[in-house]
């Protein structure tokens, strides 16, 4: 009797020790992560605040003086406002278009048993699989021929192309998840196609739709290759501006400001929509090729 009690106690202690160890490890990982993600961002914030008349150079570990000078410069003289406007009008257009295009396709892929389904599902992933620069460079020849290069509508099409895979894959999974009985019941009650779409399909795919929209939106915001080849110099988005500050015009302070402008909305969005971003959406959309 005493021995079993002893043994039980040992198990409890063991479990407690294990839990404490896990907690310690969690804290350790959080610390590592804060350094891993926090330090790069913190350094960039510092660089963006360097006062133009007090250069930050070696061997100073920290800048001598901080000011908003670099931010004022970037907003006053660079095309950042125009780029912000382009980026944030382009993205909603592309999201909307990719939603409209993917809805029927996702419906078929998610609910119908058709020959060649696997093939179509692979085709859908092509924009992600195909190397961006190759597609951009040679699609630009096609776009040139049809007057779509250096053209806002052409850019929307290009961004739609990049958003479609996420949208279709996520929506397909959502359509798959709708129980057949619900649809059968609705049909028995005499629901027509329009009612079915409005009252069953759309509400039931909404969570997936949101996840898909977020992926398509961020894809559009950070799309570089196609925009760079097809859109610049007529249209600048934030990534193409940042590229110029990192390449030929490498100026660390300006690049820092642009990098932060590009990054902050995304991080805010990440925390705002955490719930919709459960890993299952991503793995559902990309889990198999």
């Amino acid at each position: 009797m005493a021995a079993t009690k002893q043994k039980n106690l040992w198990y409890v202690r063991q479990a407690r020790r294990k839990r404490r160890f896990t907690t310690l490890l969690t804290v350790f990982f959080i610390l590592v992560q804060v350094i891993w993600v926090g330090v790069p961002i913190f350094m960039t914030v510092l660089w963006s605040l360097v006062d133009p008349s007090h250069p930050w150079s070696f061997p100073n570990i920290l800048p001598e003086k901080l000011s908003w000078g670099q931010w004022i410069y970037v907003f006053k003289y660079t095309n950042i406002l125009r780029a912000l406007k382009t980026s944030y009008t382009l993205a909603p257009c592309a999201v909307l278009l990719s939603f409209l295009f993917s809805l029927p396709t996702a419906y078929v892929l998610g609910r119908k048993q058709i020959p060649g389904k696997k093939f179509f599902q692979t085709i859908v992933l092509l924009p992600i699989i195909m190397p961006g620069m190759v597609v951009a460079l040679f699609l630009s020849r096609v776009f040139n021929a049809f007057g779509l290069a250096q053209n806002f509508f052409g850019l929307v099409l290009a961004h739609t192309l990049m958003g479609l895979p996420y949208m279709i894959r996520v929506l397909t999974t959502s359509f798959e998840a709708i129980p057949q009985d619900v649809i059968d019941a609705a049909e028995n009650l005499g629901a027509n196609t329009f009612v079915k779409i409005k009252d069953i399909f759309l509400p039931m795919v909404r969570p997936g739709l949101l996840a898909g929209m977020i992926f398509a939106f961020t894809t559009s915001i950070e799309e570089f290759n196609l925009t760079f080849i097809i859109g610049t110099p007529t249209f600048e988005t934030i990534p193409t501006i940042l590229y110029s500050f990192l390449g030929y015009n490498f100026i660390r302070t300006n690049a820092s400001v642009v990098a932060l402008i590009m990054m902050i909305p995304n991080i805010i969005m990440l925390f705002a929509v955490e719930n919709f971003l459960k890993s299952d959406y991503l793995s559902a959309s990309l889990g198999k090729l």
Partner: peptide
């Protein structure tokens, strides 16, 4: 005034 990428500017002009 349009500040674009150098190569992109010339490719636009050539196109």
């Amino acid at each position: 005034v349009i500040i674009g990428d150098q190569t992109a500017n010339f490719n636009k002009a050539i196109a």
